[in-house]
């Protein structure tokens, strides 16, 4: 993974399946950093209507995503005709701690 990976944070705002404290804490860590990043309300919502921004995310170089289970995130992008590159890194806020996700997202910052 390149040191210049773009950062993408998914809020999973349309369903309460990501623990609130984890997603809040990860967002706080991103906000405390000096990094620019993208955040979206819900990758599922975007995939539901085949939002073309998913293609922009997938095709814009190295990417690091704080979201959900990697199988799901890869599947959402693939379903929209925008498969992620092999080196895309997916951090799982449903299973990992905010500390783990935050540290991995910001390790180059």
């Amino acid at each position: 993974m390149s040191a210049n990976a773009k950062l993408l944070y998914c809020r999973c705002a349309y369903a309460q399946v990501v623990p609130q404290t984890v997603k809040d804490d990860v967002l706080a860590k991103l906000c405390e950093s000096g990094a620019s990043f993208e955040s979206v309300a819900d990758l599922c919502e975007m995939a539901a209507h085949r939002d073309p921004r998913l293609k922009a995310f997938a095709g814009n170089g190295p990417l690091r995503i704080a979201a959900c289970y990697p199988r799901v995130v890869q599947g959402l992008f693939t379903q929209c005709g925008a498969p992620l590159l092999e080196d895309a890194e997916i951090l799982n806020m449903r299973a990992q701690t905010a500390e783990e996700v935050g540290a991995a997202m910001l390790r180059d910052a």
């Binding site: 809020r11 705002a13 906000c31 990094a35 620019s36 990043f37 955040s39 979206v40 309300a41």
Partner: peptide
């Protein structure tokens, strides 16, 4: 984000 917007910092 909780209202559905996408936000770029």
């Amino acid at each position: 984000l909780d209202k559905g917007y996408a936000v770029t910092r």
